[in-house]
């Protein structure tokens, strides 16, 4: 555990909580892509199956349970509790175009051809593109509420910090995981355009377009 990894995890946690609280407090999920949230729930489910097979640390177990629990709670709020406010007409990204190729890639490029490892690889690849329905939705409507942009910013910062974590681990532990690093770079790049808009616009005007 290094400072980049810890702040990355906390940034990820902040993003998840910000989104959940926003929906809860406003009683609305307008502007939020339910499809991205389904993909994140799928990401956490397939990645954290090792909760059932191995214990790593109390921190690890707690964070995994919180991430999975919050992901399903968010999906529940969007598709059940506040379904009437869900902006389905603008959430039109075809997620099968992500899930199917990513599934194929996980079968072809992995560290070990075993069910758990393939599912872990699938989750890494899928996470790197899971935000696309949300970004697509924003580009379609041309706007996002400020709090939604804070959510996206924290989510992007999390993966960027993980990149620094991997650089740190490479130098000080000789550790590197090519699958995680390549997917992490892709994931971070997808947020770059958004980062630029966030810094130049969100803090200037309270409306993101």
């Amino acid at each position: 555990m290094n400072v980049f990894r810890l702040t990355g995890d906390l940034s990820h946690l902040a993003a998840i909580i910000i989104l959940l609280l926003k929906i809860w407090k406003t009683r609305s999920c307008a502007g939020i892509s339910g499809k991205s949230q389904i993909l994140f729930a799928l990401v956490f489910t397939t990645r954290y199956l090792d909760l059932l097979t191995s214990f790593i640390s109390l921190y690890n177990t707690c964070m995994k349970i919180i991430y999975v629990g919050c992901a399903y709670a968010t999906v529940y709020l969007i598709y059940a509790k506040f379904r009437a406010t869900y902006d389905g007409n603008h959430d039109t990204f075809r997620i099968e175009f992500l899930v199917v190729p990513v599934g194929g890639l996980a079968f072809l490029v992995n560290h070990d051809f075993s069910p758990l490892e393939i599912l872990w690889t699938f989750s890494i690849y899928l996470e790197s593109v899971a935000i696309l329905p949300q970004l697509f939705m924003i580009s379609k409507t041309g706007e996002a509420e400020t709090i939604t942009t804070h959510y996206l910013f924290c989510l992007g910062v999390y993966r960027a910090l993980y990149l620094f974590n991997w650089i740190w681990r490479f130098y000080f532990e000789g550790f590197f995981d090519m699958i995680a690093i390549v997917a992490g770079v892709v994931q971070t790049i997808l947020y770059c355009d958004f980062f630029y808009l966030y810094v130049t616009k969100v803090n200037a005007v309270q409306r993101f377009q």
């Binding site: 990894r5 995890d9 990820h12 090792d50 191995s54 790593i56 640390s57 690890n60 964070m63 995994k64 991430y67 560290h111 070990d112 490892e117 872990w120 993980y162 974590n165 681990r169 532990e173 000789g174 550790f175 590197f176 995981d177 995680a180």
Partner: peptide, 10 residues
Amino acid sequence: GDEQGVKDEL
């Protein structure tokens, strides 16, 4: 840091 060992990252 083996490739398919214990995954401590989230």
